[in-house]
Design a protein around this nucleic acid. Structure first.
Lengths: 196, 196
DNA sequence: ACCATCTTGGACCGATTAGTCCAAGATAGG
DNA sequence: CCTATCTTGGACTAATCGGTCCAAGATGGT
């Protein structure tokens, strides 16, 4: 042991994640990462491997961090599924409203780049969307929605959630994003009332 | 007057458009464009200007081409707005199902890259989404939906349409895309029945 | 048939890319 | 305090980037 790391790994990963999130994989150079993290190329390589490895780590970090928040939002689904779903969307809205974070979504960003990404990175993005769908389906089932409806709404809500990423990038207002969500919520509400 | 162009401009623009659409702006090099179009760099430059100009032209081409199809789909809105809206989505579904075209959507692709694009290119993508919203609002109003509902559904449907781009990139099936649409259609159907 | 003019292919440029390497400095154990 | 070991900054490489240039060839008006 000698020569102590002169930076905090979590802080650096957050900075790299934000950089990738804002500019995407292709438009983020190692110089950009170096500038964003305050580390130079050598330290970046010795600590995190090459650009792909670092990207994968940032993507996992993103998926885990917001995955936890989505899980938490959905935790009350068995008692009040509509409220749980509103809280699910609130996680995304809050993230978009945060001025310290980029608009959009790192998973959506990655998904759009799938044709030019390394297969393993592309797979990770697809997995993340699959996980999101599974999360939603479980919550909707717990909220007593019929299985087939739960499947359908899980897909729909995951998609609408991704649409917020695109629309926010294009400058949609928080009000508009809420409108997008409200209409899906009204459909979900109908489905709950229709069941009996 | 002399030296005739040895290629068809429309064919070349289509090839360039597909290339940008599939790989995005940053991941498309001039060599890629040269390969995709069969033209070499000199001809590309002399005919279409630099990379940004060509991109803008491809984006306009995309917006115009599919804009016309969306308009046509919505043309029956005053008689049967629900059918018109289904046909609107059918334009997107058909495009995604076409094996000769990339998944996703060039406008969504562009929107996701807005933070790193030249301001005028970014503006064009936002305009395209605004145009889409306006198109939908007009159709819904013509279909006798209350103005406030027409505004809301226009935003929602434009967003859901973009979500199909993200989901198709991540490998969603036609069946899943249809499910996403159907739930929005059920909400729209409700709104029409609720009016009186 | 000639020639002015346009298109074309390929060589070329400086800048930037991802990734490597190593000498110099910092650190902690003994 | 000494030294073995780790981190760090910057120089470096080969490849690729967007963009330019020009000689050679093709074309159409006269």
């Amino acid at each position: 042991m000698a020569g102590k790391k002169q930076f905090d790994v979590d802080t650096v990963l957050d900075a790299a994640m934000v950089q990738f999130w804002r500019a995407g994989y292709a438009d983020t150079s190692l110089d950009d990462l170096s500038r964003a993290t305050g580390l130079n190329r050598s330290s970046l390589y010795s600590s995190f491997g090459d650009k792909d490895s670092l990207y994968l780590r940032c993507l996992d970090r993103y998926v885990t961090r917001y995955g936890e928040r989505y899980d938490e939002a959905l935790s009350s689904a068995s008692e009040d599924p509509l409220r749980a779903m509103r809280e699910f969307f609130a996680v995304t809205l809050k993230r978009i409203a945060d001025p310290d974070l980029p608009d959009g979504c790192l998973v959506a960003q990655t998904a759009m780049a799938i044709p030019v990404l390394r297969p393993d990175v592309a797979a990770r993005a697809s997995e993340a969307l699959g996980l999101q769908r599974a999360r939603l389906r479980t919550a909707l089932s717990a909220g007593k929605l019929a299985d087939s409806d739960a499947d359908d709404f899980a897909v729909h809500i995951a998609a609408v959630n991704q649409s917020l990423a695109v629309m926010s990038r294009a400058g949609a207002s928080q009000q508009q994003l809420r409108t997008i969500i409200d209409i899906s919520m009204s459909a979900l509400s109908q489905a709950f009332h229709a069941r009996s």
